[in-house]
Every structure is written in structure tokens, then in C-alpha cells.
Amino acid sequence: MKGRVTFNTDRCKGCGLCVSVCPVKLIELDKSVVNAIGYNPAYPAYPDKCIACTNCAIMCPDTVITVERLDD
């Protein structure tokens, strides 16, 4: 199953919980960016790996993440 994660970057507090629970390790904290509230936000570094498991969105404390399932 393929999926796509999108991040509401300006709400992200860079806690890294999504990074820790992603089974395919596609999320990273973007150290080159500081967002509107002063954190290094999470972003999908390897978006093609997404399997639409929603683990990241379930553990996100700030409801930053939206997950879509890509139909074949």
C-alpha cells in the first residue's frame, strides 16, 4: 500500500515523535529550516517510502500530519 504524508509545517514543534515511530524511516527533522514558531519542523525526507500506516499522525501531539492512501 502506498501513501502520502503532508505536514502543516508551521504548527510543528519538532518533537520528533513521528520520526521515532515511522516504520520505514521516511520522516526527518529539517535542520536547515526554522518555522514560524521557532522549531526545526519534521518533513517527509523520503516521501515515496510511505505505506500509509498513520503511525506518525497518531503520535503527533499537535495534529500536524495528514495521511492519504494512494489508490492503485
Binding site: C15, D62, I65, V67, E68
Partner: peptide, 23 residues
């Protein structure tokens, strides 16, 4: 393409005042 997870209508758009990573 189906959205399988998004922010619930049960929450307002106000950002949480909690510390980063607070459950």
C-alpha cells in the same frame, strides 16, 4: 486517493500551548 487521517472537527484551529512532545 483517500484521506485516511486528518485533523478532527472536534478540535479548534487554536495551536496547543503544550511543550513540544507533550502527550
Amino acid at each position: 486517493m483517500t484521506v485516511i487521517f486528518q485533523k478532527t472537527k472536534g478540535l479548534t484551529d487554536t495551536p496547543f500551548t503544550y511543550c513540544p512532545g507533550c502527550t
